[in-house]
């Protein structure tokens, strides 16, 4: 096994020279996770707001389940999607298993509960403040959903980023449904997991560094975005 400093130096070379394999892996990771978070936001934001505002039979259990799913182990989510997409599964004929699409589906399922649960909390608090005024203006609870989502936007960015953090960091779900196929479904986390066990430390370390930098950059950007929005909108 190589020394740590050697591995680090090799990793650094891969990054600064823009190694093709590394760039491809990083690009695919970003594409999969960003797409998944986008899909999850489209579903999770309205879902969370409706759960906060609309009373319907079974609302309580739904909330408990969604809150619990925030802690869903990624491998289990992966297994579930695997069963759906496998040749014998209900979505088998589409041949999606071991494709980036399968990875997007799995990560979307992982992220929806996070965005929905955080959104529900934020919107519940905001509704307490807005309830009388919006009712007075004639907005029913359903009509209030888009209003509250828009007015909670600076807090909801944080919810979406929490989702992005989970998607970028998880390895279990995309490993099961993607398979870490070189050049097709190999992402940063799956590559790190498997290259480390194979002993290819430079690639694993290089990817680890890139992953860290991306996560830091995303959070820094969000932090600045939130601060600017709060200054501008009060």
């Amino acid at each position: 096994m190589q020394g740590l400093d050697e591995a680090l130096a090799a990793a650094w070379r891969l990054i600064v020279t823009g190694d093709t394999a590394l760039v491809e892996i990083v690009a695919l990771s970003l594409k999969v996770s960003l797409t998944a978070v986008f899909c999850a936001a489209v579903v999770g934001l309205p879902l969370g707001a409706v759960l906060a505002l609309v009373r319907f039979p079974g609302r309580g259990p739904v909330i408990v389940v969604i809150d619990a799913l925030m802690g869903l182990p990624p491998v289990v989510a992966g297994l579930f999607v695997y069963l759906l997409l496998s040749r014998a599964g209900p979505l088998g004929p589409y041949g999606l298993l071991f494709t980036p699409t399968a990875m997007v589906i799995a990560q979307t399922l992982l992220v929806i509960p996070i965005i929905a649960a955080l959104t529900r909390q934020v919107v519940t608090d905001l509704w307490a403040e807005y309830c009388e005024q919006l009712t007075s203006l004639g907005a029913g609870r359903l009509r209030a959903v888009p209003t509250l989502l828009w007015d909670a936007r600076s807090s909801l960015v944080t919810a979406i980023l929490a989702g992005l953090g989970r998607a970028m960091a998880e390895v279990g779900a995309i490993l099961v449904v993607g398979g870490n196929i070189d050049g097709v479904t190999r992402t940063m986390t799956t590559a790190i997991a498997l290259e480390t066990s194979k002993g290819d430390l430079p690639l694993a370390l290089g990817l680890g560094i890139v992953l860290l930098v991306i996560v830091l950059a995303i959070n820094a950007a969000a932090h600045m975005l939130g601060a600017t929005a709060r200054r501008a909108a009060g």
Partner: peptide, 17 residues
């Protein structure tokens, strides 16, 4: 009838826009 009334509250609730 509801649409023909308005109310101003002690602490105004203004939307973030």
């Amino acid at each position: 009838t509801a649409g023909r009334q308005a109310m101003v509250f002690q602490r105004p609730v203004l939307l973030r826009r």
